[in-house]
Amino acid sequence: MNIPENVEQETMPERLVRSAYRAMPWLLGFAMAAAVFSRAYIIRHVHTSVSPK
């Protein structure tokens, strides 16, 4: 990502984009953790398939 050397000169859209990029690793990490948890959750279910009917 591009972080300007002088952050104070950033416009509002640029600041928003920079904040969004900074948040992305956290968002993606959280989403993946939730998805992995969901996969682990269904392991013990009694079902011939993996989809709820």
Binding site: A31, M32, A34, A35, F37, S38, R39, Y41, I42, S51, P52
Partner: peptide, 8 residues
């Protein structure tokens, strides 16, 4: 990820 969590 939301779909996974919601469904399962």
């Amino acid at each position: 990820a939301t779909w996974f969590t919601k469904v399962f």
